[in-house]
Write a protein that binds this DNA or RNA. Structure first.
Lengths: 144, 144
DNA sequence: TATAAATAGGATAAAATTATCCGAAATAAA
DNA sequence: TTTATTTCGGATAATTTTATCCTATTTATA
């Protein structure tokens, strides 16, 4: 469904969110350990999230990655997925046709709309805040 | 969502279905031309579909790929996807955790269930027959 | 100002996916 | 039985994705 990079990006964002609640910045090293991902690769993904303004980075000593506490409820999975995997999952044809629309639909065009809308709705209505709170309360986990 | 291999597999199956209606076998060459895919790679995918008994092959002169006309309505997208991409899309964790279930859910476990069920329902309830008929009637297309 | 700590980013490498090529095996028809 | 045709399957190559390494740049503090 999502690329590895996107999976890491989502999990990293959640971990950053948790720490941002407590005013703490985190490093790629801490993040990678917590979400069980390769550190350097994770760092690249964090850079992408910074470029897309999903998270914020502070260079230099005492720096790290953080998210504005007040924005947590407005950041949703959709933004993270788009930042890393692009919007292909939103707009791309399910069967890979370059041109696929109402006037020239691929064989699964209509069938896919339902699925895609469900996914879209989920991504757009799931905030980093709720995901972070679930982790904090022990209701969900970032690694196996 | 699906791999390229799977996209080709679905489109190829539909084209074979159309021809099987008329008792015609088709070659990888014809298929690749019709679905706009690399021929040799497509042939590999066809082999996989044969091994999984989704389609049938006849070797030698006057051979080719075909599907039993009477089975067309019972073959659904789910079978094709499972044959090529495996059942990761059904059972795999949305965030890639090795272990992710009700007792130890990833952050999006619950949210994903809805999306996955919608996809599953779509794949299991879409038959090759209906997809083939749509192509025949000009309601949908195999390439751009 | 010097130093240590931290992210940024380029260059590579490894692994997986996608794609190509070619000979072997099977089969219908001449 | 020979030939032409066609799928099968192994080897290899190209591309993309995933992953690593190293240096430059930034910045807080001593």
């Amino acid at each position: 469904m999502f690329s590895k990079a996107c999976e890491y990006g989502i999990k990293a964002s959640i971990f950053i969110a948790i720490n941002s609640y407590e005013g703490k910045r985190v490093s790629p090293k801490e993040i990678a350990k917590e979400i069980n991902s390769p550190q350097a690769f994770t760092a690249k993904i964090l850079q992408a999230l910074v470029r897309h303004k999903v998270i914020n980075s502070v260079k230099g000593a005492y720096g790290g990655f953080e998210i504005n506490k007040n924005e947590l409820k407005y950041i949703n999975l959709s933004q993270i997925v788009k930042a890393i995997d692009g919007d292909n999952i939103y707009n791309g044809c399910g069967l890979g046709l370059d041109k696929c629309d109402e006037n020239h639909p691929c064989p699964v065009h209509e069938k896919f709309i339902t699925v895609r809308d469900e996914l879209k709705h989920m991504l757009e209505n799931t905030s980093l805040e709720e995901l972070a709170l679930d982790i904090k309360s022990g209701a969900s986990f970032l690694k196996a």
